[in-house]
Design a protein around this nucleic acid. Structure first.
Length: 303
DNA sequence: GCCCCGGCGTATGTAGAGAC
DNA sequence: GTCTCTACATACGCCGGGGC
């Protein structure tokens, strides 16, 4: 809206419309003034401004008060509608999951999508059947995507989250080692030497990276492992390990009931995975966003 | 900090109707 | 015709917000 239309609206004082509403209801300036908490002359002044605004007397005096002119009568219904809309506009924002058609865009790596966001999608379908969920891979410019509103939330681990963004802890889990079923390590924990000498599969979502949390933990001990293969997806790891003489270190939940692979005890201590949700501050008080965050935390607590 | 403007309250004026 | 009551309008001063 621009130009003359905006100028017209600028001339309208909401208090004048409230005065008109009270006058239409009470048909008495003194009682309408009392209802609005102002004095009679103040409301009389407001009536004068209303008359100038609408270029109509609006009310004429009678023995027992005032009666509206046809112009004022005609204003009654649209005014009531406008005031109801205005009250709705300033009422506290609400979110109705059952009626919402909002699309929630969430990024996460493929493993977290599998472990957390697939159950979240089921919960969302139950609670907000008309809403939609868009899952995205973790972008390199995560903070920028959140700031632009391209993403509502990102599920990531605390160490990788952009600094200074609001976040909420979701779940913790530990790393486990996996090898092909029947491998000697499934019966006896490997030595650190054997572990470092084995051929490892490393997940590098961005592709090409040759370091992970396992390498950092080994580096603290002055050791190094042999990475023979990198893949871009956690979900590829069990299949790769099941068919070759490779070992991998993966989040515990990834193992599940994967055929052909079995876990083994790691000879090195790794810090737990702390999964968190992060978002941009501008969404912090958005009712729909807060509802989705709470649902995500609820699902995370149940997996 | 000063000035202007708009809105409000107090005091008062005005108009209409009823009682006598 | 005059007084009284009720209700709205007007004059004036004060105050707060906005612009410079």
């Amino acid at each position: 809206m621009t130009g003359p239309a905006v100028d017209e609206l600028r001339r309208i004082d909401l208090n004048l419309l409230l005065a008109l509403d009270a006058l239409l209801d009470e048909r008495n300036v003194t009682r309408a003034a009392r209802r609005l908490g102002v004095t009679q002359p103040a409301l009389s002044g407001a009536l004068g401004r209303l008359r100038a605004l609408f270029d109509d007397p609006l009310f004429v005096r009678t023995r027992h008060g005032v009666v509206p002119t046809p112009r004022a009568e005609a204003l009654a219904e649209p005014l009531a509608r406008w005031l109801a809309d205005a009250r709705e506009l300033v009422a506290p924002a609400r979110f109705e999951p059952a009626a919402s058609e909002r699309t929630f865009s969430i990024s996460a790596n493929d493993y977290m999508q599998h472990a957390l966001l697939v159950p979240f999608a089921r919960a969302l379908e139950r609670r907000a059947p008309r809403a939609a969920l868009a899952l995205w891979p973790q972008p390199e410019d995560l903070a920028a995507q959140l700031a632009r509103g391209a993403l509502d939330l990102a599920v990531t681990i605390a160490e990788w989250a952009p600094p200074d963004l609001p976040s909420r802890a979701l779940y913790e889990e530990r790393y486990v080692g996996i090898v092909r079923r029947g491998h000697a390590w499934t019966r006896r924990r490997p030595s650190l030497d054997a572990f470092c000498a084995a051929k490892h599969v490393l997940v590098s979502p961005a592709g090409g990276g040759l370091r992970g949390p396992t390498d950092d933990a080994l580096a603290l001990l002055g050791r190094q492992r042999r990475v023979a293969l990198t893949v871009s997806s956690f979900l590829l790891v069990p299949g790769v390990v099941a068919s070759r003489e490779l070992v991998a270190v993966v989040p515990e939940r990834l193992l599940g009931r994967q055929p052909g692979v079995a876990r083994f005890a790691l000879p090195v201590d790794l810090p737990p995975i702390r999964a968190i949700a992060v978002w941009h501050p501008r969404w912090h008080r958005d009712p729909a966003h807060a509802w989705a965050r709470a649902l995500l935390a609820e699902v995370a607590a149940s997996i």
